[in-house]
Amino acid sequence: MDWNRRPTSPLAPHELIPVAQPKKRPAQKRSWEQLPENAVRRYRLPENLYGKICAIATLNNISNVSHVAIQLVDYALYQHYQGNPEFQLSTRPNPQGRKFLLAWKAEQSNWNPPQNKLAPDFERGKQKRKEKVLPGEYGGKIKDVGLRLSTTRLRLKDLADETYLPISDTLTFLLLKAVIAYENGLFSLELKQIPA
């Protein structure tokens, strides 16, 4: 079978037929978008947790997921600093990294920490990059999510620094606990008109 015998069209389909293009993201030119505290930051969140937050946004007719995330994190931070035991982060050292790891309750009892290798690995070639997976409840897929957490981000960062945890792990914990509280009806979201 000779593929070279196939005639090649002088014109590509997009020159003859209208081709659908994905909608382009609008340029971030609004003044509030350009403020440093409103910049989009990327966080590594479990995919199903992010899905739950999106679902909460959809249910409450909120088009911006970041607004929901801010409310959830604010609630969780408030509970944390009020001393609610459900919202206290427990950590454990990570022998493979500088920062600590989040210790979920389920695995605190029989946790077997990974050990550092005594001898260096002499395998040649490209090393496989280890996928960082949060332990405990969330062993699922991790997704890079862009959120504008505004000033809440600074408070989140403070807590992450206090507990010596990566900021994404801290955010995951707070969002998860807040989502559970939301699902249990401990708090609800209310839409308010922003005064012009």
Binding site: P13, I17, P18, V19, A20
Partner: peptide
């Protein structure tokens, strides 16, 4: 398309 079809080729 020449006859006025409004759709697009997705791929």
């Amino acid at each position: 398309s020449k006859q006025g079809w409004q759709g697009k080729l997705a791929g």
